[in-house]
Simulated scan of single mutants.
Amino acid sequence: MYKYPFAEAVGKRYLDPNSSNRVWAMVFDIDRPQASMAWDDAMLPEPNWTCQNPENSHAHLGYALAVPVSRSINSLRKPQALMARVEHAMSTALGADPAYGHRFTKNPLHPTWRTFYGRGSGYDFEELRSYLPDHLPLIRNRGEAIGEGRNVLLFTDLRNWAYRARLRFPSLDAWLRGCFEKAQAMNSQFHAPLPLSEVKATAKSVAAWTWDHMSPEKFAAIQARRSAKASVLRQSNKMDLTARMLGASI
């Protein structure tokens, strides 16, 4: 992966339509004849562009978003999770390649490809959801995660692991290495692993937060609060049971 100025990047055969921190478009890789009409076969809305390989008719279908979704490590997780679920459902409906990395795509401006332009404005998720099943699956299996779903799942799984593992590491350096190694192991389970830079950023963010918020002292305080709440709840339940028993005996 190389970064080029815009004027130079648009001359390449392949490029990433999204920036490092924002998703502006979702792209799907269709590896079969008549791929350019896969959206119509799946009863999905028309892509903003279709970039076809003239030699085998395989194609990339691009859907621009009306509002980009931030995917930085500090961004809100709900928009990312919604995008991941919509992207996965659309990929399934299109019969798109699940191993596609959803980063580099055929450049629609390059003469190598045959490009068809469709709708001129971007889509919002509510409109896209109207073409999909009512209940979009929440993907928990790393082997099934695609596109932005990989980022969401890596962050969620690594965070859940870090909550339990934090107290096993005596130093920050050891903890940073431990989180990165665990993130790498999780990433290797995706069909199309995330770039190393994204894995490092996720591991660093999770490690920094859990190191600051899950120290032995803070963990003990959390456990004490939970124990106190549980004690109050048990006492309240006993009082309710006693009241019901007295009421039944009158």
Rank of each mutant, 00 (worst) to 15 (best):
I146C: 02
L246N: 05
P133F: 00
P133D: 07
K204Q: 14
A221D: 12
G147D: 11
N160V: 11
A145S: 09
A64Y: 02
Q34M: 06
D41I: 10
R244D: 01
Q34A: 07
R140D: 05
D40T: 10
S75R: 07
I139S: 11
R103G: 02
R159A: 12
G247P: 07
W49T: 02
E55D: 15
L196E: 15
E126M: 11
L94C: 04
V69G: 03
E217N: 09
Y63C: 11
N187H: 04
H60G: 03
P137C: 03
R226H: 14
P216D: 14
I146T: 10
G62S: 00
F116C: 13
A145M: 03
W161L: 04
P47S: 13
N18R: 12
D16P: 04
A230Y: 08
F104R: 10
A7G: 11
M26T: 10
S70W: 03
Y117P: 12
T242C: 10
V10W: 14
D124Q: 02
Y14V: 06
T105R: 03
S91Q: 12
N56G: 07
R226N: 15
A248Q: 07
V86E: 14
S197L: 14
V10T: 15
Y100V: 00
W211S: 14
T112P: 11
T202Y: 09
A201I: 15
S130Y: 06
P47H: 14
N56K: 05
S231W: 00
S227E: 15
L153Y: 01
W209V: 02
P133M: 07
F219W: 14
F104A: 13
P17V: 11
W175I: 01
H102M: 00
L172E: 04
Y117M: 13
A243R: 13
F125T: 14
M1T: 04
E198W: 03
V206M: 00
A230V: 05
E8V: 14
D29S: 02
A228Y: 07
M1P: 08
P111K: 01
P108R: 06
S19K: 11
R77H: 13
G147Y: 06
E198T: 03
L65H: 06
F190R: 05
N74M: 09
H58D: 07
R166D: 11
W175V: 02
L136C: 04
M26R: 09
Y14W: 12
Y4C: 03
R71Q: 08
L65M: 10
N21C: 00
